[in-house]
Design a protein around this nucleic acid. Structure first.
Lengths: 205, 205
DNA sequence: CAACCGCTTGACCGATTCGGTTATTAGTGC
DNA sequence: GCACTAATAACCGAATCGGTCAAGCGGTTG
């Protein structure tokens, strides 16, 4: 484990991304250490040198992702953002930003929710618990609805935005190239259109 | 192959669903015949009895899905539907309906787009071509935009709906239970809300 | 009851791949 | 040239891979 931490950051990121990608794509059992070694351009033996065993590597990734989520969660105080659409936009930007350096982290996190291998079943909570906490703080608040022409539309619109975010994630899952800025621009425009059509006049601009 | 067609429809569907699920979940190379046999509650030898080889089974599935898509495409004349939202709702209903008897067909179809195994690479076009045709007929038309308060919003709203559909698909991918009617109800409500807020008064009702 | 038939499958094939180990190499500081 | 370390080629037994085959089973026909 300390062997791994002694590597340069570039090499560490390469290895982590390879592992996140393989586990995210294939799941725990179907992803082999050889897959990961090839993707990371290192030898299979090195993977064992760094992490000890397949299970230990997987758990390391769970804890690694947990820390990442904690990091982006603390960094930005979403509470201070008063407007619903601003809050969604900000949190999406944060997620996308982390996606830039860790292209496969989202895929890995979502794969964890579908993981069924008994080998690691007990350990999954390390990450699932944290992602739950994160999502719970991104909730719709009471006074958000008051800005809507029809306040009862607030909930559904919020759900639609969450769905769209999942749609984006699904669309670019597995794609090897991905233009973050274009997607965020697209998302921002969609949010602007929704806001313009759903908010009362007095809350526009 | 004729051996397979001689089975009861129930057994055939069980086997097809098992194969669609495994290939959809793991991809061609990582899905083993044993996985499929276990999921279908038959022996591994039977799978070879029915389909000859792994590759032949995979190609059979590609052609099977192609036929399914052709079927639901011919059955419903989307052209006659004049309203954008109605068209989207109808095609979604059709897709969902096929999803009821073939729970894993959507997952399989989307997995085909990510398939990279050289063994079947040449054969993928069987299905990808057909799905392209299907999607091309579900396009936004010129006069759809005229119904919008801001006609330039029509394109983005259409894209948002496609994104949401992908979001639904992603959300329930891998889930073993799935309440179709609830999801369709949800989707229908979202469409109604969007229509109400984006259409000119004169086009409501 | 016996002989036959066709479907299903347990047992098996050689080859490959699995997670994991070890001995050798390649690289670096002195 | 030498000692030390980090990376890997080669290897391990076990498991699994795609694929084969003959034994076993439930019907049907005499």
């Amino acid at each position: 484990m300390d062997k791994f931490l002694a590597l340069t950051e570039e090499k560490r990121l390469t290895i982590l991304n390879a592992a996140l990608q393989c586990f995210g794509k294939f799941g725990y059992e179907k992803a082999s250490i050889n897959d990961i070694a090839v993707a990371a351009h290192i030898s299979k033996a090195s993977v064992f040198q760094y992490f000890g065993s397949k299970k230990q590597l997987y758990i390391y990734l769970l804890e690694y992702c947990k820390k990442i989520i904690e990091g982006i969660f603390d960094k930005e105080a979403l509470d201070s953002q008063t407007d619903l659409f601003d809050r969604i936009m900000t949190s999406s930007k944060i997620e996308m930003e982390s996606f830039k350096t860790q292209p496969f982290i989202l895929q890995f996190i979502s794969s964890v929710w579908e993981e069924t291998s008994p080998d690691v079943l007990d350990s999954l909570a390390i990450l699932t618990e944290e992602t739950c906490k994160f999502r719970n703080d991104m909730i719709l608040r009471e006074d958000d609805a008051l800005k809507f022409k029809n306040p009862e539309d607030a909930g559904p619109v919020f759900q639609m935005l969450l769905l769209m975010a999942e749609g984006y994630a699904a669309r670019y899952r597995g794609a090897d190239t991905f233009d973050f800025d274009t997607v965020m621009d697209d998302f921002q425009k969609n949010i602007a259109i929704l806001r313009k059509n759903f908010y009362k006049e007095e809350y526009l601009k």
